[in-house]
Simulated scan of single mutants.
Amino acid sequence: MTEPTSPITQDVLTLPRKLPEGGKVNLVGLTRDQLRDALIAAGTPEKQAKMRVGQVWQWIYHWGVRDFGAMTNLAKDYRALLDRHFEIALPEVVTCQVSMDGTRKYLLRIAGGHEVEAVYIPEENRGTLCISSQVGCTLTCSFCHTGTQKLVRNLTAGEIVGQVMVARDDLGEWPVPGEPKDETRLISNVVLMGMGEPLYNFENVRDAMQVVMDNEGLTLSRRRITLSTSGVVPEIARTAEEIGCLLAISFHATTDAVRDKLVPVNKKWNIKTLLDALRDYPRLSNSERITFEYVMLKGVNDSDDDARRLVRLIQGIPAKINLIPFNEWPGSPYKRSDWERIEAFADIVYKAGYAAPIRTPRGEDIMAACGQLKSATERARKSKAEIDAETGL
């Protein structure tokens, strides 16, 4: 594992033409337009700005370079100018735990001393990186460990992109100048399914994904990025129009009474409202199905009647249903459905014409599975009684 870089000392959401007083601006996470404005504000002639953006962009996102002095196609005086005004800083790696199944969980420290988690899941011929969008979460979904940690703040675009770059550091995925290009993609997919609700941090998530999808850097196709939302209806159309990635819905129930308890945002935008928005989703097609995530909770949402209601509800929506065996965590109020019950549920959904894969739990031994993410410091502070009190159970 590579040596972690220094923690981020400053992040910019919308950069003005004039640089802020004091400190250096972190270039990680700036869109091309924001990077152009930053370089001009630092003294780059406007006529050179487009070229300089392309050069700096490639060094940061294609080669993974953090030292301006190593950007050898730039003049020495220009490298010195960059070093005076800017930095290339990533979240600090506090720990990297490796599961028996190869899953890697990163505990990352960001500005302010806050911590978030990201998870890399290796599979045959591919690898998926699950990244976070907020420190904590506002949603308090009662089955989710992350939901028992209160929201601290949104992540900046730089802190979101930084998670991808940290994982590439750890996996040694940056190309090496002068060596044959390795076409293997260890990080072939990114899912916004970590800590937080991405659509409550829309602008930063959008800008970060613009960086990740840019074809001259990290070069991940929009079809390789999946954003998971609990159902923030007003931002769903914007996701298609301004990001264009695939969409997953944290669904988990077939009646409002049950979903109100499992996913409290349902009280604001109920099942019908959510499904109406999904039917109007601009990218809705058979080739770009919406994924419905459905965690299997014993005796709560796993009956044959639930399965039949589910297929009736989503009728007319090109979709697949990911059935997720509940990943238990200390103090969790639910139990995982029996395997036979999960298979019976899946069979009903499958016979109705929908793909219904049962997700294989990964990284459970290091608390890296779906719904288990929570920063170690927060986890250590909570007693079972406190967790129960927060979830209202």
Results as ranks from 00 to 15, higher is better:
residue 235 E to N: 15
residue 201 N to I: 12
residue 346 A to G: 14
residue 35 L to W: 01
residue 343 E to M: 11
residue 84 R to P: 04
residue 101 D to S: 08
residue 354 Y to L: 03
residue 89 A to Y: 02
residue 167 A to H: 03
residue 126 R to L: 04
residue 385 A to E: 15
residue 315 Q to Y: 10
residue 361 P to D: 00
residue 9 T to V: 15
residue 282 P to G: 10
residue 326 F to P: 03
residue 212 V to D: 02
residue 176 V to T: 15
residue 351 K to F: 06
residue 239 T to G: 00
residue 129 L to G: 00
residue 242 E to K: 07
residue 47 K to Q: 08
residue 196 G to N: 06
residue 171 L to C: 01
residue 65 V to R: 01
residue 5 T to G: 15
residue 73 N to S: 09
residue 351 K to R: 09
residue 152 V to H: 02
residue 19 L to E: 05
residue 126 R to Y: 07
residue 6 S to W: 09
residue 44 T to Q: 04
residue 33 D to E: 11
residue 307 A to K: 14
residue 146 T to A: 09
residue 45 P to G: 01
residue 330 P to V: 01
residue 139 L to T: 04
residue 319 A to W: 03
residue 146 T to C: 07
residue 377 T to Q: 14
residue 322 N to Q: 00
residue 177 P to R: 02
residue 222 R to S: 08
residue 345 F to V: 03
residue 251 F to T: 06
residue 374 K to V: 11
residue 333 P to Q: 02
residue 219 T to F: 14
residue 111 A to S: 14
residue 380 A to E: 15
residue 219 T to C: 13
residue 60 I to C: 03
residue 242 E to S: 08
residue 79 R to M: 03
residue 369 A to W: 01
residue 134 Q to N: 09
residue 353 G to P: 04
residue 115 E to R: 05
residue 129 L to R: 02
residue 131 I to D: 02
residue 190 V to W: 01
residue 58 Q to W: 00
residue 259 R to Q: 13
residue 156 T to F: 08
residue 46 E to S: 04
residue 139 L to A: 06
residue 382 K to S: 13
residue 36 R to S: 06
residue 371 G to F: 05
residue 372 Q to H: 12
residue 327 N to E: 04
residue 75 A to I: 06
residue 60 I to F: 02
residue 358 I to W: 02
residue 346 A to P: 11
residue 174 W to E: 00
residue 233 V to G: 08
residue 52 R to S: 05
residue 349 V to H: 03
residue 307 A to P: 15
residue 77 D to L: 08
residue 93 V to Q: 05
residue 251 F to W: 06
residue 354 Y to S: 00
residue 322 N to M: 01
residue 16 P to N: 13
residue 285 S to A: 12
